[in-house]
């Protein structure tokens, strides 16, 4: 879902397009009864005799877009009826912004999120007198708010959006109710829980034993897999926080990877140039985590 800033050119263009479409519909629906039917919201499409086509009304188009196959891999595995049941129970699309906190440790988890391919969420823990440290990365393969599925309502870590992207969101209480009748979702979440625990376990060992350059390579590959893109938008400060190192450590590691022509970075954009080369530079943890997710 795209939104335009109030007063912006994008908003002006959007309003102009909406006005033009409304005028177009009025031209087609020339009698009062048809206009009343459209205004009532109980029709989906209008036929255009000039083009010989049927045109979906905006509300129907939006509803179909919401009901279209999700890019989140957990939701994509569900039978269509089960997915439709979740939509009917309140699963809704949402756009999240960089740095948006979805839950804090010790807080009630009010919403659960299924990120789409455009979104990454870090699960982060903070140690007093030290920085933050990412313990897991959640993207389109997973779900944020997993404790809710196990009957735990309180978060133990911070979940923060690493960039702007979309997700499907649902109130935790309604999700719990729906989960009881969604057997395919239960099975998918059991598998995801296993894979997430494995990721956290491997990440703990990785943070302890592996060099920053190898860890950075691992992280970039994991992010790229989840975004389904070779372009990752991040700053060195963010990466330093996520990897639990100083900013200069990330700069040195990124420069080394860039010198080997594995990545290119500028102004917060990191592009993976040589995926196989980056895999060779990453520690074993990338492949181990990937294998577990692939098997799950």
């Amino acid at each position: 879902m795209t939104t335009a800033c109030p007063g912006s050119k994008a908003e002006a263009d959007h309003l102009e397009a909406e006005t033009a479409f409304a005028a177009f519909i009025r031209r087609l629906a020339h009698d009062a009864a048809t206009l009343r039917a459209i205004k009532s919201g109980k029709v989906d499409a209008i036929l255009d005799p000039a083009s010989g086509r049927a045109i979906l009304l905006p509300e129907a188009r939006e509803a179909l877009r919401r009901g279209a196959a999700p890019t989140n891999q957990i939701l994509a595995t569900l039978p269509r009826e089960e997915y439709q049941r979740l939509l009917a129970a309140g699963l809704e699309p949402v756009t999240l912004a960089l740095g948006e906190v979805l839950h804090e440790p010790g807080e009630l988890i009010r919403q659960i999120y299924f990120p789409n391919e455009s979104l990454l969420v870090s699960l982060v823990t903070r140690i007093q007198n030290h920085g933050a440290l990412e313990i897991a990365l959640v993207g389109s393969e997973g779900m944020v708010g997993l404790p809710v599925a196990q009957g735990i309502g309180t978060a133990s870590v911070r979940a923060v959006a690493q960039g702007t992207g979309t997700a499907l969101r649902m109130e935790a209480a309604r999700f719990c109710e729906a989960l009881g009748t969604c057997l395919a979702l239960q099975r998918a979440l059991h598998r995801y829980t296993h894979a997430l625990i494995a990721q956290i376990t491997q990440t703990a060992a990785c943070n302890c034993f592996h060099q920053v350059e190898a860890r950075l390579a691992r992280w970039l590959l994991m992010a790229s897999d989840r975004l389904q893109s070779n372009l990752i938008r991040f700053t060195h400060e963010w990466l330093a926080d996520l990897l639990g190192v100083r900013r200069v450590g990330v700069t040195v590691a990124a420069s080394a990877l860039q010198q080997q022509r594995l990545i290119q970075y500028s102004r917060g954009n990191i592009t993976i140039l040589d995926r196989e080369g980056l895999k060779a530079s990453a520690c074993e943890c990338y492949q181990k985590i990937k294998d577990i997710f692939d098997r799950a």
Partner: peptide, 19 residues
């Protein structure tokens, strides 16, 4: 389905759907 058969719908005088 008017997406499959729009001309038939138009010939039958259908302007909006469902109808």
């Amino acid at each position: 389905d008017v997406f499959e058969q729009p001309l038939r719908a138009l010939a039958d005088g259908v302007i909006v759907t469902p109808s």
